[in-house]
Design a protein around this nucleic acid. Sequence first.
DNA 1: CCGCTATCTGACGATTTCGTCAACTAAAGC
DNA 2: GCTTTAGTTGACGAAATCGTCAGATAGCGG
Lengths: 225, 225
Amino acid sequence: MTPAERRNPRAERTRAALIAAGRRLFCERPVDAVTVDDIVQAAEVGKGSFYNHFTDREGLVRAISAEIRGRIERAVDRANAEVEDPARRVARAVCTYLRFALDEPERAGVLVRVHSGHTSMSAPLNRGLVDDVSAGLAAGRFVVPTLEAAVLYVLGVTQLALVRVVQEPTSSLAVSLSQQMLSLLLRGLGLAGGEADQIAAQASEEIVRQGAYAAAFQDPSGAAH
Amino acid sequence: MTPAERRNPRAERTRAALIAAGRRLFCERPVDAVTVDDIVQAAEVGKGSFYNHFTDREGLVRAISAEIRGRIERAVDRANAEVEDPARRVARAVCTYLRFALDEPERAGVLVRVHSGHTSMSAPLNRGLVDDVSAGLAAGRFVVPTLEAAVLYVLGVTQLALVRVVQEPTSSLAVSLSQQMLSLLLRGLGLAGGEADQIAAQASEEIVRQGAYAAAFQDPSGAAH
DNA sequence: CCGCTATCTGACGATTTCGTCAACTAAAGC
DNA sequence: GCTTTAGTTGACGAAATCGTCAGATAGCGG
């Protein structure tokens, strides 16, 4: 039984309202600029209720952050479920991130703000990335100096692309950015220019077909909506 | 006459103490977690003095941030003063950043923390980078889809490398990181693998010779020390 | 040595934010 | 309908932080 079911439905509604309000506020200004009073007012619940569900504001931030990271992780897993080629997996992971910024700008905004962005943004992408880059190395598709450098390299490019899309969340920007930055990225990993361009174009075209990645964000496994 | 000279020396000492204390504190924890009382206590000056020099805490942050960005800009300019080749200029700019993290970990730490890192970190590197990438395109050395994508790409890689070195500021890490990530980066920009490796190795070897870049941070032009 | 100006000082009132608690309410079981 | 348990509420005291101001001080010009 999931956490959602083992709670009193009333408590669950309150908790969800607090999380939704927190997400809205943390997206529009820095975490430290949001007070507990702001949150309970936006959620339309009493202040005491806040402390029933979270020990303090950090607790809420952690809960929101964990939910977001879980969603991205699942989305990347699903987008890559049947893809074997490491280069295509990396490309799809990057595109999933950018699609995420379009489909869920509020969550992406929180991700960019929380904890200087860096660690919390890296974590979910980093998870599968190490495996994919290792596989690419083993398969001889990637020619990179070290695993750590290659992973940092992909993370760096992806993070800045995400930040850019969060700042200006238009579909055309995400498509062109993902295509162009992916192409640079894949060439850096050792793919020939032609192949890099081709994979980048393929992956980023899928971004424009909302259905392809939107499905990956749908969430049958009982996380908050 | 510079700002330093047109002030009463006593006032200048106070101001410098406040800036130094702020830098120390902003480096070790988030800006919002540092109070004005913390700062004046660390600087060993009265609280009223703080408000003689800055309108509020943000004013101090702005002053510190501007000083840091100025230092990096000048350092990059100096490191690239006699270098013409766009690929080598980009490589040296990246290396200057990493050397900066080693030579001035406190300032680099502030840079990473202030304003989610992104904009304030990008600005100084971004300045010359647009020109260098444009030049590289014009000279046929770079093969990139668009200028914006290429600049974001370089910024993304550099930022994450800087963050990594700030987290663990050892010379060997910076050298290996800069060499490896630079190699990936240059290949992404269209250079052949052999040439990318060669330029990366050259630029990053200069990092280990402290003198080469340390000189670039020395500051004859009268900014705060 | 005197006075004048620029600067420094730290105690203070105002304001904000926090986390608690005793009273209140809703829903489930008997 | 009564009891019990879980959950909610908002007023409240404690604590932190802010920015100010009247008085103290330093150092310079004369």
